[in-house]
Design a protein around this nucleic acid. Structure first.
Lengths: 160, 160
DNA sequence: TATTGTTATACTCTATAACTATA
DNA sequence: TATAGTTATAGAGTATAACAATA
C-alpha cells in the first residue's frame, strides 16, 4: 500500500517564511527567545504547581519578609488588583501568610511559611537547572553582556 | 571604613525590595526588559492602529506575498484559530486580502494591498526609531552579542 | 483520511473604576 | 482626604476541540 509522502521529502519544497525585516529588530528576537524561556519555565514549574507569577511572588516574599502587597505589586510591575488572586492562591496553599500590621491596620505584612520557604528552595534549584540548560552555548562573556544589555533596556522604562 | 552613605538623608526613603535571587536569572531580566520594549512598542504603533501581533502579521505578509494562513501561524508561533481575528482586522482595514488559491480551494493566499504596504513602510520606520531609542547606550559589539545570545536561546526551543 | 480555515470556548495576564476599612 | 486591599469587569493573548469544505 502507498504510504503518505513524508512530511519533508525535499527541504527545498518547504520554502521558509522570510522574516528578515523583523529579524532586524531586537524586540522581535527577544519576544521569540522569551517565548522559549517561558515555555520551558512553565514546564519546569509544573511539578511545583507554580506559574511564573506565583513563583516570582513567592521568591520575593521569601526574600523580603514583612513586605506589603502594594510594595510587591510595585516590584512585580503589576497592578494591585491582579496581585490579589496570586496571593490568594499562595495563601490557600499555605505557602504564605497575610499578617495584619499592628501599626497600620489597612496593610498586610506578607511572610512565607516553612512550607513556602521549602518549596521556593526546590523551585529555585529547578529553575537554576532550567536556565543552565537554556543558556548552554553562551560563554561567560556573552552571558555577562546579555545581562548588562537587558539591564540597560530595562532602565529605558517610561513613566508617563 | 566607609559607611554606606545615603544619597540624601531622607527618612521617608522607602527600602527597595530585594530581588537579588530573581536577578540571578536571565529569564527574569528578560521579562522585565521585554515589558519595557512592549510598552514602548505599543505606544509607537498606536498612531498606526497596530498592535504587536497585527504589525508582525502585516510585515510578514508584505515580505511573503501569497503566504498561507497556516504558514503564517507557524512563522508567528501562534495557533491557527488565533490568527483568524488578526487577519480579519487587517482585511477589514483593507491592508491585506485573502485570495483563493486556484490549485487548493481550501487555502487562502495572503497579500498586502497598496495601503498595507504603505502602512507597513511607515510602521517599520517608526519601529526603527523606537529601537534606536531603546538600544541607545549599547555599542555595536554589545548589540551583536545580544542578537546572537537571543538566537541561541531561541534555538533551544522544545518541540514536545 | 488528512488538511485549511473557522467557530466556540476557556484560561491566563493585564488594566481601570469603584468599593471598604482604615489612616 | 488619602491609602491598602478588594471586587467587578473588560480586553488582550493563547490553547484545544470540533466542524465544513476540500484534498
Amino acid at each position: 500500500m502507498k504510504r503518505p509522502a513524508p512530511a519533508h521529502p525535499d527541504p527545498e519544497a518547504i520554502p521558509k517564511v522570510d522574516d528578515s525585516t523583523l529579524r532586524g529588530f531586537v524586540g522581535y528576537r527577544m519576544k521569540r527567545a522569551f517565548n522559549v524561556i517561558q515555555d520551558d519555565l512553565s514546564k519546569t514549574l509544573k511539578p511545583f504547581e507554580l506559574r511564573m507569577l506565583t513563583y516570582t511572588a513567592l521568591i520575593l516574599i521569601v526574600d523580603n519578609p514583612g513586605l506589603r502587597q502594594s510594595q510587591l505589586a510595585d516590584a512585580m510591575d503589576v497592578e494591585r488588583p491582579n496581585l490579589v488572586v496570586i496571593l490568594d492562591e499562595l495563601e490557600r496553599r499555605e505557602l504564605i501568610v497575610r499578617d495584619r500590621v499592628p501599626t497600620d491596620r489597612r496593610a498586610y505584612a506578607l511572610k512565607a511559611t516553612l512550607a513556602g520557604r521549602r518549596l521556593s528552595e526546590q523551585a529555585v534549584a529547578a529553575v537554576t537547572a532550567h536556565e543552565d540548560r537554556l543558556m548552554r552555548g553562551l560563554d561567560d562573556g556573552a552571558l555577562e553582556t546579555l545581562r548588562h544589555a537587558l539591564k540597560t533596556i530595562e532602565a529605558r522604562k517610561r513613566r508617563d
